[in-house]
Nucleic acid binder design. Structure first.
Lengths: 203, 203
DNA sequence: GTCTATACTCGGATAGAC
DNA sequence: GTCTATCCGAGTATAGAC
């Protein structure tokens, strides 16, 4: 039997390597070795390196994008939904280095076509969900802007933590996903619409 | 005359290229061409590519790190100092793509030695200044954590804006450095200690 | 589908002349 | 200090056998 899902296996190995070392630093040879085949044979599955990169990105981001909807499936209060959404995103970025690093690489590379594609086809849906939730429970004239700030803070925190751990006075618990999510939610509650403010607020 | 500061000229060209395209994607030949010399001659100035990379990073980050102190030179109120610090950092990341991209590349690469070095030798001082200011005017039990969040938000916002512009409902003014700094300061004021709360707060 | 062999290009680095 | 010439390894990609 000729390996049922060799294509997926290649995509998985390639995304890991691309995520951790970058596109140009990873050769077709390395990827081939990682899946135990010859370099030449990769060209049976992908036209060239570019196509392999694009396919790997699509596979990773598509695979993870539907999980927000799942995390919010059960219909709780807006505040609980917001809490879940924050915790979903924080956990995604902190615990899944393949997504987070590929995501950051895309932001850095700045290929406009790829960014536009990713945004409109993959991120937009989750983003709309967040806006909706924010609109329901946060007291702000511009929920879109608020959503951008919320996402930014999470993104930045995940990025910055790789260096912030070395700062004098930084404690390990600052960088625990669960603690981060809770702290963020506590901050957000300060902006909650009055009826939503369910718990005591402590920094 | 044999070019007075050829070394600086090389470092400048190299940092630009590294920032925009990444270390492994930029060859010694490209750098040489950019400064108008032969590839071989780069080895007169730098032992190898690694040394060129390290030198370029050091030059860029050292060059910009002292400017926060300068921005805060005159001794105003803590709140004004915080406003200046925020605006300094936002402007730095938004307007100087060489610093910001190199910074993000370092965060992404995650070379522990280099990150530790950068943090402790270059970022720590500015960071301490921010903590001091926050401690003076923000009502929080943990100014260090607050400083990390503030920095994260700015970092994340700068990163995220490259993709957020493509989101439905995003307005161009969301990504104007000056507007971003002002909005951030408005948010921060909500956490200000009572006597510092000088202006009306609007989101 | 997977291999071997091979073509070709490009990148890093050194030697030695000027 | 800068060049030319050159080496070598590594990278992408293709052809064709099995």
């Amino acid at each position: 039997m000729p390996a049922p899902n060799m294509r997926e296996k290649i995509l998985e190995a390639a995304s890991r390597l691309f995520a951790f070392e970058g596109y140009s630093a990873v050769s077709m040879r390395r990827i081939a070795t990682a899946v135990g085949m010859t370099q030449a044979n990769l060209y049976y599955y992908f036209k060239d390196k570019e196509e392999l990169i694009r396919s790997a990105l699509a596979a990773v981001f598509n695979g993870r994008s539907h999980s927000l909807a799942a995390a919010l499936a059960s219909g709780e209060s807006p505040e609980e939904r917001l809490e879940r959404a924050i915790s979903w995103f924080v956990t995604l970025l902190f615990d899944d280095e393949v997504v987070s690093k590929l995501f950051f690489r895309e932001l850095l590379t700045g290929d406009k076509d790829r960014l536009k594609f990713l945004t409109q086809n993959i991120f937009q849906e989750s983003f709309n969900t967040i806006i909706e939730i924010i609109d329901a429970c946060i007291d702000t004239p511009d929920p879109t802007l608020a959503a951008i700030y919320l996402a930014s803070t999470i993104i930045g925190y995940c990025q910055y933590s790789t260096v912030a751990v070395y700062l004098q006075g930084a404690k390990p618990e600052y960088f625990e996903p669960v603690a981060v999510a809770r702290h963020l939610m506590d901050q957000v509650r300060r902006f909650a619409k009055a009826p939503c403010l369910a718990k005591e607020v402590l920094a």
